[in-house]
Computed example of a mutant assay.
Amino acid sequence: MKIRIQGNSIRYRLTKSEVETLALKGYYQEETQFGEKSFTYALKADTNVQVLSVDFKSDTITLYLNKTKSLEWPNNEIVGFSSKLKTSKGTTLSLLLEKDFVCMDNTVEDQSDNYPNPKLSK
């Protein structure tokens, strides 16, 4: 799973196996070690969630996706989910969760588990 944070926007990109793990287990996470501490980013399927939402607790960003959507996602053509949330400070936090496609340019990154890029099949 890749995470991109820019200003008030958070984007997660998941490979095929990560999307399948979310559907199977209802949860997926990764972490980055910073010496004694770690930063965790996670995704959780929840029946009580209707739109993509988020929280940040104990050095962990967790995106919440509707459970039904998470179960259907590996087997459909939906690229991703997004939402915009108002913060307590009156700003907007943009959330994006999407399938990770094979890059169109040359990269040294392993892309064997990425989804085929629809732009490359034309």
Rank of each mutant, 00 (worst) to 15 (best):
Y64P: 06
T107K: 03
K37S: 00
S82Q: 15
L95A: 03
N66T: 01
K57A: 07
M104G: 15
T60Y: 05
K57F: 06
V102H: 06
L95E: 08
T68Y: 04
N66R: 00
K44G: 10
T87P: 06
M104K: 13
T68D: 12
S38M: 11
T62P: 07
G90S: 06
A45N: 06
K86A: 14
D105G: 14
L96Y: 08
S38F: 06
T62K: 01
Q50E: 15
T92H: 06
Q50S: 08
F101R: 10
K84T: 13
T92G: 01
S82M: 11
V49E: 03
T60A: 04
L43I: 12
N106R: 11
T91R: 05
L85F: 06
K57W: 07
G90L: 01
G90C: 10
A45Q: 05
N76S: 08
F39K: 05
D55M: 04
V102N: 03
F101T: 09
K99R: 03
L97W: 02
T47K: 10
K69M: 08
F56H: 09
L52T: 04
S70V: 00
E72L: 12
C103P: 13
L97P: 08
K84E: 15
F56L: 13
T87C: 09
K86D: 15
D105E: 15
L71N: 07
L85I: 14
L43Y: 01
S94D: 12
T92S: 14
N75I: 10
D100V: 01
N106D: 15
F39D: 12
K89F: 08
A45M: 00
K37H: 10
N66F: 06
F81S: 01
K57S: 02
A42W: 10
D55R: 02
L97E: 09
C103K: 14
N48D: 15
T107H: 12
L65Q: 00
K99N: 07
L93Y: 05
K84M: 13
T40H: 08
V49L: 09
W73L: 06
L96N: 07
S38E: 12
T62R: 06
F39Q: 09
Y64G: 04
L52A: 08
I61N: 03
D55K: 05
K86R: 10
T68H: 12
K89R: 01
V54C: 11
V51Q: 15
N48Y: 11
T68M: 08
V51H: 15
K86V: 14
E98A: 11
L97I: 02
Y41S: 09
K57Q: 10
D100A: 02
K67F: 01
S82I: 02
T107V: 09
K37T: 05
N66Q: 00
E77Y: 02
D46M: 00
M104R: 13
